[in-house]
Measured scan of single mutants.
Amino acid sequence: MKVMIRKTATGHSAYVAKKDLEELIVEMENPALWGGKVTLANGWQLELPAMAADTPLPITVEARKL
């Protein structure tokens, strides 16, 4: 699914347009965010693609819901 990742004042957030859902990312498998699992505030887990740590945000990526 397409997910937009952006930086907020409190960390990172994910927006899933198909579900009209925006949630804070509360847990990251990798400190650089990319190439691992993230957990959203509502409990969803997404697998993000591997990208460079300095990838500019906001960005829309293809993520997989676990």
Rank of each mutant, 00 (worst) to 15 (best):
K7Y: 09
H12Y: 15
T39Q: 07
V38A: 01
A14W: 08
L24N: 12
T60P: 02
T10D: 12
D20F: 11
H12C: 07
V16C: 14
K65Y: 15
L46E: 00
A9S: 12
K37C: 09
I59S: 02
N42V: 04
S13P: 02
E27V: 09
G43M: 03
P58D: 02
V61N: 00
L57W: 07
S13E: 07
E23G: 05
P31Q: 10
T55H: 04
V38C: 03
N30A: 07
E62P: 08
L57Y: 08
A63Y: 06
Y15T: 11
W34T: 03
K37E: 05
E29C: 06
E62H: 12
P49Y: 05
A41M: 09
K18H: 15
V38E: 02
L24Q: 13
M1W: 14
K37S: 10
V38S: 03
M4C: 11
V16F: 15
T55I: 07
G35Q: 05
P31D: 11
P58C: 06
G35I: 04
P56V: 12
L24H: 11
D54V: 05
K18F: 15
P49E: 05
A41G: 09
T10Y: 13
P56K: 12
W34C: 02
V26Y: 04
A50T: 10
I59N: 03
E29G: 05
W44V: 06
A17G: 10
H12F: 15
K37N: 08
H12N: 05
R64E: 07
K18M: 14
L21G: 07
E27C: 13
E23H: 13
R64L: 12
R6A: 10
A41N: 07
P56H: 08
E27Y: 14
E22V: 09
K19G: 14
L33K: 02
R6M: 11
P58T: 05
T10C: 14
E22N: 09
A63D: 00
A14P: 00
K37D: 03
E27T: 10
R6W: 09
E47W: 14
V61G: 03
L66Q: 06
T55M: 07
L24I: 13
Q45K: 11
P58H: 03
R64C: 10
P49K: 01
A17Y: 15
V61I: 10
T39R: 10
